[in-house]
Design a protein around this nucleic acid. Structure first.
Lengths: 222, 222, 222, 222
DNA sequence: TATGAATGAGGCTTCATTCAT
DNA sequence: AATGAATGAAGCCTCATTCAT
């Protein structure tokens, strides 16, 4: 009752405190996401519990539900953030392609994903799980939309190169698909327990695979 | 005396009946495996329960445990059967390579795995899960041993080709690893919900990727 | 219809076979009891399953139920047999007491029970369990009746000794009860994991305790 | 400001409420232990289920696991509490022995255990079970350590008495062992259904047995 | 009679989410 | 807003007993 109203345009005394509160709330949200990600990487998707996340942030379990409506929402947020970062890298690559460095997108994409394979795979799994259980279908749709716009940009690059006769004439999405697949496979290989003993020079292996990706469909000598 | 003679080499009375019983038991085991596989494909590894499997076969929960000691054992069995089939295909390919068709192993491997990508990915996940939870470590070791022997055979092929100067000179396991990764990626791509709307000619896409795999490191024109 | 009737008085041909069958059946019963006892001693009361017993005898699980109506009945039979043997030893001791060796019953009782403490305790536990779960109340009643008759005989011995002024004048059943308790305690001590490290000379310990039992209430010098 | 002052040294607002909450939580823990003990006594160790305990306290099954990590932990806790009380009584007895009342420890020990024979036997069984199944080995070790220190103190008393020629010269642990055994036997006797009909004066019977225990090895007239 | 496959109740434990304080 | 105790559905597995062959 006797509390001052707090709106952003309001600069009466007391506002500052309210703003700090909001700030703290936002930071807490970030902490929750950080903690969740860390735990997911440590333990895998299966076994992370809400209780563990809360404990790591050192807040109550209930507080988590003031920020997110469900555990899935936390995971969705992480997924979005990761995809966002990846999309930005790709955009940079596409920009370079426009200036003539046609291999830049492939390299950017590959390097981004392979830079932290543990994380990359984590999100692959997470997305899969969320889709399978059909949780958050609208959010997933949004995510796919974002990707589609990236793909469209990439396809433009490929189409141009095809038109120039520099790439084999196949539907341009073949290139994006193949890039994706090779990158995906590289990430999985990086993780595979089966290959653990076999692959002694993992960095060399990754370079070798990236090289394959970068030269897909190339009609120039390589 | 008045019993009908059994229709096999063994005509001790009661034998025939016993054999039928054994047969029925084996078939039930197969039914359980089939049901489990079907459910796994439908729902993913996460959510299949022993109760569901039992319900699908229309038997009691307990009956499952007459055939398998645990849910994990069911999964392991499915895994082994799948790997077995894959290994056989690869051996055929390797045999062809010995007769000069050096691309046969790659093609056999790729085609086998891509033939049923849903299943392939399922088992990938299953294996990963079993390893992570460290269930059935001995069985996993056995599985890996089987694979290692295949890898050795493949590496022989690669080494020979490298010696002949037909392949780029890198550690031979790079080739196996890269094959694996590309195949893995193709399977994931096939399955990916994100690409569902984008890829209109999936078969063409797969051929395109396989072609990449088959020509890895090739020094001949392509 | 065309089978010869088989009664014991009947000595027509075919009888011999029937008798053998009966004999085999009886032996099987004994085998089941032996196997059950052995498993009980090996594993304790908790974990022995009907399946294990059947496997040990090398017969089908169902066959067990042709001989006994339930697992409890098997246990009851074992219990009876053990008690029977104990009762016989005690009767011998009482007979000796009648000839003047007044310590014979106590000694016989103690020595019988301590001779195989593992078995003794097993049956103690078994009886307790059966009583608690109120399985087979009539059989338990029968068992107790048997014991009561023994106790009556013993009490006669004690009463006489009291009358002679050789034993402290207390209700005669005090002696039987105290014997029982000391013996019981000795058996438990023998088993106790807590004393495992402490008691280095278990035989001496047992003798020491038996001696206490044998001299209970004795008014003669000791 | 308008909050009532908390009635303790700490008057930060909300503290009082928090304290009440903690108090309530502790009380619930006690309720669970009480309920478990009651059920154990009623039904024996075999058949008490977590569900029953929860029902008795009128809480959900899951709540139990907020207080204890497993059913075994509940049992261990009960065991510890019982042993603690017993150890304290014994220490008092040993203190009296130091002042010349050499029979005090035996009496204290016996009377403590016989005071609630049902409970005493329950814990005997419980401990046995936990040891057999090798659950909670560290906690068991702790328990045994506690006992060992008691035994050492008792043995001192016995050694002194032996040196004084007041007790028969045997290893001092014979006395502790024999005490234990007699007490154990008395407890079992008290509980035995077989003796139910026979023993009309159970208190007298117990005194009689305790007297035996108290005079073990005594060289003085009695 | 002998068999052993089949049953299903019942036990323990986990964990996302709710809600009273 | 923050908390964390409470919840209870759901999962895996065991085993005495039944019953069709």
């Amino acid at each position: 009752m006797n509390q001052p109203k707090s709106n952003t345009w309001d600069n009466r005394p007391g506002m500052e405190k309210a703003r700090q509160k909001v700030e703290k709330f936002k930071q807490r949200e970030a902490s929750i996401l950080d903690a969740a990600l860390e735990l997911l990487i440590e333990q895998g998707e299966e076994s992370v519990t809400v209780e563990q996340i809360a404990a790591k942030v050192d807040i109550g379990k209930g507080t988590i539900y003031k920020h997110f409506t469900s555990k899935t929402e936390i995971y969705m947020r992480l997924l979005f953030d990761y995809e966002q970062a990846l999309a930005n890298k790709l955009k940079d690559g596409i920009a370079l392609a426009a200036k003539g460095d046609f291999k830049a997108p492939a390299r950017a994409y590959f390097e981004s994903r392979i830079a932290d394979p543990v994380k990359d795979r984590l999100f692959q799994r997470l997305e899969e799980k969320i889709i399978t259980l059909n949780q958050a279908p609208e959010l997933m749709a949004e995510l796919h939309q974002q990707r589609n716009s990236i793909e469209a940009s990439l396809n433009d690059v490929f189409e141009q190169r095809i038109a120039e006769g520099k790439l084999k004439n196949v539907p341009p999405y073949f290139y994006y698909g193949a890039y994706w697949a090779i990158t995906q496979g590289a990430v999985e290989l990086y993780h595979s327990k089966s290959f653990e003993g076999l692959v002694h020079d993992m960095d060399g292996m990754m370079d070798f695979i990236m090289d394959i990706g970068v030269h897909i469909g190339n009609r120039e000598s390589h």
